[in-house]
Amino acid sequence: HFTSQQLQELEATFQRNRYPDMSTREEIAVWTNLTEARVRVWFKNRRAKWR
């Protein structure tokens, strides 16, 4: 589960860029205190939901 702060950060990034690269995902991981893998999976799932 994600905190509302984490989701806000993830959503804001998603609005700007639906396909963040590795370095962007790592930055998000640092800001949100999540692993890069969790961030990558979140984006994958979010893109699926967005379609």
Results as ranks from 00 to 15, higher is better:
3 T>H: 05
28 I>L: 13
2 F>V: 07
46 R>H: 04
46 R>A: 06
27 E>T: 10
49 K>N: 08
24 T>P: 01
30 V>R: 15
48 A>T: 08
45 N>Q: 13
33 N>P: 01
36 E>F: 05
32 T>A: 07
14 F>L: 01
35 T>A: 05
43 F>L: 02
8 Q>N: 10
5 Q>S: 11
20 P>M: 03
17 N>T: 08
5 Q>C: 12
5 Q>M: 12
6 Q>Y: 03
47 R>A: 04
24 T>D: 08
9 E>D: 13
29 A>C: 05
40 R>F: 07
51 R>L: 14
7 L>D: 05
8 Q>W: 12
13 T>H: 15
15 Q>F: 07
51 R>P: 07
35 T>I: 04
36 E>T: 05
24 T>W: 05
36 E>S: 05
11 E>P: 00
3 T>V: 03
24 T>M: 13
21 D>K: 06
49 K>V: 12
15 Q>V: 08
26 E>F: 11
7 L>K: 07
29 A>N: 01
29 A>L: 02
22 M>D: 04
11 E>A: 01
42 W>M: 01
41 V>A: 14
21 D>I: 04
19 Y>W: 11
26 E>S: 10
31 W>E: 12
18 R>C: 10
21 D>L: 05
25 R>Q: 03
15 Q>M: 10
37 A>T: 09
45 N>W: 15
31 W>C: 08
5 Q>V: 10
6 Q>P: 02
25 R>V: 09
28 I>N: 00
51 R>T: 09
38 R>I: 15
17 N>G: 05
22 M>H: 11
3 T>F: 04
31 W>Y: 14
2 F>M: 10
48 A>C: 10
16 R>S: 09
45 N>R: 13
39 V>N: 00
45 N>M: 14
45 N>L: 13
2 F>Y: 12
16 R>D: 06
48 A>Y: 09
7 L>V: 09
1 H>W: 13
6 Q>F: 13
7 L>Y: 07
37 A>F: 14
28 I>V: 07
46 R>T: 03
46 R>G: 01
47 R>Y: 05
24 T>E: 14
39 V>E: 00
6 Q>L: 06
31 W>I: 15
21 D>E: 04
4 S>V: 13
22 M>W: 11
12 A>T: 09
50 W>L: 10
38 R>D: 15
49 K>C: 09
38 R>N: 09
47 R>M: 05
3 T>C: 05
31 W>F: 14
9 E>G: 08
17 N>I: 09
44 K>W: 09
39 V>Q: 00
28 I>Q: 01
1 H>K: 13
47 R>Q: 06
32 T>S: 06
41 V>M: 14
11 E>Y: 04
49 K>I: 14
4 S>E: 13
2 F>W: 07
38 R>C: 14
16 R>E: 09
18 R>A: 09
12 A>C: 14
3 T>E: 04
32 T>R: 01
32 T>L: 15
39 V>M: 01
40 R>K: 08
41 V>Y: 11
11 E>M: 04
26 E>A: 11
23 S>T: 12
2 F>L: 14
29 A>E: 01
6 Q>N: 04
16 R>M: 09
45 N>E: 14
14 F>T: 02
31 W>Q: 15
13 T>P: 01
7 L>T: 07
25 R>E: 02
18 R>V: 05
30 V>A: 14
46 R>Y: 03
7 L>F: 05
24 T>S: 08
26 E>M: 15
25 R>S: 02
1 H>L: 10
18 R>P: 14
25 R>G: 02
1 H>C: 12
8 Q>R: 13
12 A>G: 07
14 F>M: 03
3 T>I: 04
4 S>Q: 13
50 W>P: 06
